[in-house]
Simulated scan of single mutants.
Amino acid sequence: MYERILVPTDGSTGTAHVAMQAIDLAEQYGGTVSVFHVVDETASSLLEATGSRDQLEEQGRRAVERIERMAQVHGVDVETEIRTGDPATAILEYAEEIDADLIVAGTHGRSGVERRLIGSVAERLVRHADCPVMTVRLPESDETVTDAADARAIAEDALAESEYGDGEITGVERQVSVWVVDVDADGESLVAYIDPVTQRTSLVARH
């Protein structure tokens, strides 16, 4: 159903949530996530004189690479592309070029200037794209694992796929930049470290 899912990104805070929606769908349908960034030609021309165009391109590269790593963590096929132009126009053209089945785009859902700068792109996609468009409101954080229940569920999945098979979760703690989940698996003490953004999970035996 969704063989090719296009995710436009400008690197805004909260984009990880948009990416996870696309990655979840790609996992379900065996699809490919296409991550796309547009270096806004208007912003580029304004900054060219100050030598900041390279900075815009570097920001774009980091934005697509971040989602690329997230997709790889979840075992989803991913491809990336960076172009220069008008964001909405370039996204629509690229969606047609790759024959996208779905566009998953972020929106702030706000009013005033922010809506004109960010919301208008999503609005144009919804109006003019030939394929369905899913809009996801960007939260104030990039964290996709926000509570102990989520961390517990991810740890249980990682445990089920490991050599241990199953076990009992004995503790869940949120530390500065990681979730730490304690596990008792057949008498062996384990700990699962979960990245709160990418959901990358490392299951380690305590010694």
Rank of each mutant, 00 (worst) to 15 (best):
R4N: 04
R4Q: 05
L6A: 05
L6K: 01
V7H: 04
P8M: 13
P8L: 12
P8N: 13
T15I: 14
T15Y: 09
A16K: 05
A16C: 08
A16S: 14
H17Q: 14
A19I: 03
A22S: 00
A26S: 00
E27F: 04
E27P: 02
E27G: 05
Q28K: 13
Q28P: 03
G30L: 00
G31R: 02
G31D: 00
T32I: 07
F36H: 11
F36V: 13
V39Y: 02
D40F: 01
D40T: 00
S45A: 15
E48P: 06
E48V: 13
E48C: 06
T50Q: 14
T50Y: 13
G51H: 00
E58Y: 04
Q59M: 11
G60M: 03
R62N: 15
V64P: 01
E65D: 10
E65T: 10
I67M: 06
M70S: 04
Q72S: 14
V73K: 02
E79R: 14
I82N: 07
R83N: 11
T84V: 14
D86L: 06
P87L: 05
A88G: 00
A90R: 02
L92G: 02
A95M: 07
E97N: 12
L102G: 00
L102I: 01
V104Q: 01
G106S: 07
H108F: 07
H108W: 09
R110H: 10
S111C: 09
G112D: 07
V113Q: 08
E114H: 13
E114I: 14
R116W: 15
L117V: 15
G119T: 04
V121H: 00
A122K: 01
L125E: 02
V126G: 09
R127H: 05
M134L: 12
T135R: 06
T135H: 01
T144D: 05
A148K: 15
A149S: 12
A149V: 10
D150E: 15
D150Y: 13
A151F: 09
A153S: 11
A155M: 10
A158C: 10
L159E: 07
A160Y: 08
A160E: 15
E161V: 13
S162P: 04
S162W: 06
G165P: 01
D166W: 09
E168D: 14
V172T: 11
V172I: 12
V172L: 10
E173Y: 12
E173A: 11
S177P: 04
V178N: 12
W179D: 06
W179C: 08
V180E: 08
V180S: 09
V181P: 06
V183K: 04
A185T: 01
E188D: 10
A192T: 05
I194T: 08
D195N: 15
V197I: 14
T198G: 02
R200N: 14
T201K: 05
T201W: 05
S202G: 10
A205Y: 03
R206L: 10
R206G: 11
H207L: 09
